[in-house]
């Protein structure tokens, strides 16, 4: 198996928590992994991206080649569009529908969603709303991971284990909320892909 995943968002939205859960799951499965992150200045509310590569064979580059991403997983709709040149012909785009507006020239929301709906394969999910229903608005990133899970070739149970490990030190209650979130996200994607 091999998955090239672009994780996108805005500095401070916590895309690295998604990467951590995914990376832990991949390690549990004895898979090879490379994951390039954005640190430093952009973390102050700028566009951030992480290239995540998981494979059962050794991986050469830390960066994904253009047109070869199997999945763009974005926690913000406009950021999802920024990395389209990386998406492969058969790739999926999975994005949160809640915009993060911290710039004066943020485009009209409808136009952003129009561009997303123009894609052949996508899932657009109200991760914030679903996270609230699951019991904690801050679990929206795990809703997103759940929504992306049907397109990643890793056992869902291993992703759940990854969440248990990443959130263990925050207590059982937080683990449960995040598990509920990832399951809700997965269910939505399976029904709406």
């Amino acid at each position: 198996m091999k998955s090239n995943i672009i994780l996108a968002g805005v500095g401070g939205q916590g895309i690295l928590s998604i990467a951590a859960a995914l990376g832990t799951a991949a390690l549990e499965n004895n898979l090879h992994i490379k994951q390039a992150e954005t640190h430093g200045m952009s973390q102050r509310g700028g566009a951030v991206v992480s290239h995540m590569r998981i494979s059962d064979k050794p991986i050469a580059s830390d960066l994904i080649q253009m047109g070869t991403a199997d999945l763009i997983l974005s926690v913000e709709p406009m950021e999802a569009l920024r990395y389209l040149p990386f998406l492969s012909e058969r790739g999926y785009l999975v994005t949160n529908t809640t915009p993060f507006i911290n710039i004066p020239n943020y485009p009209e929301y409808e136009k952003v969603m129009e561009e997303i709906h123009r894609l052949p394969r996508f899932v657009a999910i109200d991760a914030d709303g679903i996270a609230k229903e699951a019991g904690n608005a801050r679990a929206s990133n795990m809703v997103m991971l759940g929504a992306a899970s049907p397109f990643i070739d890793i056992d869902f149970s291993k992703l759940e284990d990854g969440i248990r490990e990443v959130f263990a030190r925050k207590g059982e209650q937080i683990v449960e909320v995040n598990l509920k979130a990832i399951r809700a996200g997965r269910q939505f994607a399976q029904e709406n892909k």
Partner: peptide, 18 residues
Amino acid sequence: IYQGIPVPPVVANRPPAL
């Protein structure tokens, strides 16, 4: 090099901020 779909013009720059 195969390039995926071009970035739609609607996408605005998002520089870091305080």
